[in-house]
């Protein structure tokens, strides 16, 4: 099976450790991961901020870069949702592009979908002896409908102490450019999320998206959240002991 890593631009620059973790998990399970170097950005920020014309070349570039793989895996719920849910709408009216999108989009998976649904694994052989709470990001929850998959993977991690997050399904307030355009509301939502995290007494808050985690982490590092630190769940799955 040819698996391509869709790193996403934010992870490429800001969170390379998450990409390395995905590679480590898949290799530990005996798979080979390829990294199509032509990839850049999926265009989510452009499209969601209203810049459709600016997003379109990036859509084209994505479907070219990832054509021909059996599976494309991305460690980001929102970027995978962009490809799977929004690309078909953006490609409407361009039959060539629509065909390319329909070839790639359905085979683009968030990491937990690839592991649980395609590869049929929940125990990836990880060990992470800490108290962890899991925030299901909005795109993961309501667009990709990841459901219980990330939690099922986390539950199988050796030594982990998983704590339920109160009001887990509530948005953290990130929302891409919303965090800047409506900074006040975003901050109010963040404060509530950090308080919920603090209530769990967790050492780490895990999620499927580093952009939400950067926002949450930015609130946690100001002292909210009771000392919890943000971590992408792929890094927990890659872990083999104490950090």
């Amino acid at each position: 099976m040819r698996i391509a890593l869709f790193i996403t631009c934010v992870n490429d620059l800001m969170f390379p450790g998450t990409g390395r973790a995905v590679v480590r998990v898949l290799e530990r399970l005996g798979h080979t991961v390829e990294f199509p170097a032509e990839q850049t950005c999926c265009g989510q920020m452009h499209a969601n901020s209203g810049y459709r014309a600016e997003a379109m070349p990036l859509v084209r570039r994505f479907v070219d870069a990832f054509a021909g793989y059996d599976a494309v895996v991305g460690p980001s719920g929102s970027c995978v949702a962009m490809v799977r849910d929004s690309y078909p709408h953006l490609a409407e009216g361009d039959p060539g592009l629509a065909a390319a999108v329909s070839a790639v989009a359905p085979r683009t998976y968030e990491l937990s979908e690839l592991l649980v649904d395609v590869l049929g694994v929940t125990d990836v052989g990880a060990r992470f002896p800490y108290r962890v709470t899991y925030h299901p990001t909005c795109h993961g929850l309501r667009m990709l409908r990841l459901g219980d998959r990330p939690l099922a993977l986390l539950r199988a991690v050796g030594g982990i102490d998983l704590a339920d997050l109160p009001g887990a399904a509530e948005c953290c307030g990130f929302g891409g450019t919303f965090a800047v355009k409506n900074a006040g509301v975003s901050g109010a939502m963040l404060a509530d999320k950090c308080a919920a995290i603090a209530a769990t007494g967790a050492q780490y808050v895990a999620a499927v998206d580093n952009s939400c985690l950067a926002h949450i982490g930015g609130g946690l590092s100001r002292g909210a959240g009771g000392g919890a630190r943000p971590i992408h769940y792929a890094e927990i799955l890659a872990s083999e002991g104490a950090q």
């Binding site: 800001m14 900074a183 006040g184 950067a214 609130g219 590092s221």
Partner: peptide, 17 residues
């Protein structure tokens, strides 16, 4: 506007690529 209510992360020493 970002840093009014949260800190901003810094990029690490090496990109993924």
């Amino acid at each position: 506007a970002w840093t009014t209510s949260r800190d901003a992360p810094l990029p690490p020493g090496e990109t993924f690529r």
